[in-house]
């Protein structure tokens, strides 16, 4: 894996109906071997406030065109700055960083479960999985239908998505985890990948455990260095663990079996 620091030129940076932003970056020197689930660390702002880089999942990557695609929502000062970057401007990117999703066997039956902006890393994953002729089933939960603006990118891959909205404005009315739980019975999946709110991923992992299906999830945490040096993004995967994993280097992707959620 060849991580480096690069300047990427912003091709497009637009707010969608979802309220979230989509950014396309021209970055020819980005490591072609970048894996789904890895992230990039972006300097947001030229000065010292905000000071630290911000991590973003690789939402999609076209290695032939050298195009990186990100999806983000406004959270704080870093993403606010990022949202103001005009097309044609350069941004400072370190990556790809972290451990991505493991690759299942070609032809494997795979379920993806995404919640909200957590859908981001699952697009690049879905692309790679279709290249491996995996049979994909995707469940995607949002609050209301405006947040489905990423849907067409999945449809372009030729994969089907079952949608759940909290308000019933599209697809299944209710939680995506309920939809997933109903459908998993008939799916016979080999592996499950999920990204979204922790409470959602905890439920997905619990259902997967019932059916003895392995899987992986992606965590997030405040980060400083992003390369495993500062030990800031530490967390215990199980309360009884002695050691802290580092989300940036040991993750952000972990297997269901490594985790025990404590959702208090």
């Amino acid at each position: 894996m060849s991580v480096s620091q690069m300047q990427g030129m912003v091709i497009e940076n637009v707010q969608k109906n979802s309220g979230w932003y989509e950014m396309e970056i021209s970055i020819p020197s980005f490591a072609p071997c970048a894996r789904p689930g890895q992230f990039v660390h972006i300097k947001t702002g030229a000065g010292s406030d905000p000071l630290l880089r911000r991590p973003f999942s690789i939402c999609d990557f076209d290695k032939d065109a050298g195009r990186l695609f990100l999806m983000y929502k406004l959270v704080g000062s870093g993403t606010k700055w990022l949202s103001s970057v005009a097309s044609g401007s350069y941004i400072d990117i370190v990556g790809p960083l972290g451990k991505g999703f493991t690759c299942p066997d070609p032809g494997a039956r795979v379920i993806l479960v995404g919640g909200g902006i957590g859908i981001a890393p699952l697009l690049y994953l879905a692309r790679r999985l279709t290249e491996r002729n995996c049979r994909l089933r995707i469940f995607y939960g949002v609050e209301e239908y405006h947040q489905l603006s990423a849907l067409n990118k999945f449809e372009r891959l030729g994969v089907n998505i079952d949608v759940a909205t909290h308000d019933g404005s599209a697809g299944f009315k209710g939680l995506v985890t309920d939809l997933f739980e109903q459908k998993i019975v008939s799916e016979k999946a080999d592996v499950i990948y999920t990204c979204g709110p922790e409470i959602m991923m905890a439920k997905v992992a619990a259902v997967a455990a019932q059916y003895q299906i392995p899987g992986e999830l992606s965590l997030e945490e405040y980060m400083a260095c992003g390369v495993g040096a500062c030990l800031g993004c530490a967390r215990k995967l199980k309360a009884e663990d002695d050691n802290f994993v580092k989300i940036c280097k040991d993750g952000p992707v972990f297997s269901f079996s490594q985790m025990k959620f404590d959702l208090n």
């Binding site: 010292s48 406030d49 530490a234």
Partner: peptide, 30 residues
């Protein structure tokens, strides 16, 4: 990185937080 005699697990999360032109850390010598 600071070295103790025995392995040290460090402090509970969250360990870092950005502040105006700075950052707080409480790594705890992991």
């Amino acid at each position: 990185k600071g070295t103790t005699l025995k392995p040290t697990p460090g402090n509970p999360a969250p360990r870092i937080y950005e502040t105006a032109s700075g950052m707080l850390n409480s790594i705890g010598l992991e």
